[in-house]
Design a protein around this nucleic acid. Sequence first.
DNA 1: CTATTGTTCTATTTGTACTAGCACAATAGC
DNA 2: GCTATTGTGCTAGTACAAATAGAACAATAG
Lengths: 117, 117
Amino acid sequence: MLLRIDPASSVPLFEQLAASVRSEASRGNLRAGDRLPAARDVAGSLDINIHTALRAYQLLRDEGLVDLRRGRGAVVTDRVAHYSELGEAIPRLVASAKEIGVGVHTLTAMIRQEYGS
Amino acid sequence: MLLRIDPASSVPLFEQLAASVRSEASRGNLRAGDRLPAARDVAGSLDINIHTALRAYQLLRDEGLVDLRRGRGAVVTDRVAHYSELGEAIPRLVASAKEIGVGVHTLTAMIRQEYGS
DNA sequence: CTATTGTTCTATTTGTACTAGCACAATAGC
DNA sequence: GCTATTGTGCTAGTACAAATAGAACAATAG
């Protein structure tokens, strides 16, 4: 489990942390039943506030990627399989967007638009 | 040119307006050389501030979708062709994301993550 | 029973997003 | 040239979100 964040980035810390976990999931480095490190530990090693780490975990719980229970921590759910599926489709779209010079903001905005309709 | 916004949405007005223009582009309703309505007109008919309309246009200029010149207005560039390409690839990805129950926020976050690496 | 782990609540500080008004500058078209 | 049109720059207020913090609490594991 390689969790990384960049304090200098404009992306919120909790989003970065959640993205880092998703990235592990989409690369197949996480399996259903695996347990993520305790929020307090993550906060300690990344030098962020516990609440910030918890918020990332809660975001992942809302997505359904992990179950969150007191005393037990964050446990990866079955849905992790879906993430590795997307882990193949997404790079293709991103690659073609980069080729034609469409930026990340534009791409995500177009996806939001398509998703909403 | 059908430009729509939803004042009740949490998405910024200028983003909505820009998305609306992109949508027209990706559907093939815009061609290189076409001129968008003047920002003041758009602002007037959508009942938003001129700056908000202008900001949408400036966003599209930064993307390269339009040229912006005083007195002349916003003119669609050649890059509009790329948008209609994505207009085919994006719906496929979005459809599969919806199928497996991955939300729009998660999907765009994963794309951001992939794009950055 | 005890340590571990997430939950809830309140509060504060800080920074950014969004919108807006006003004056200005460049272009188009007559 | 003149004039209306159109985008630009500057300034600022309001509102919201991020991040941190402390404290007390509740469920689970072993």
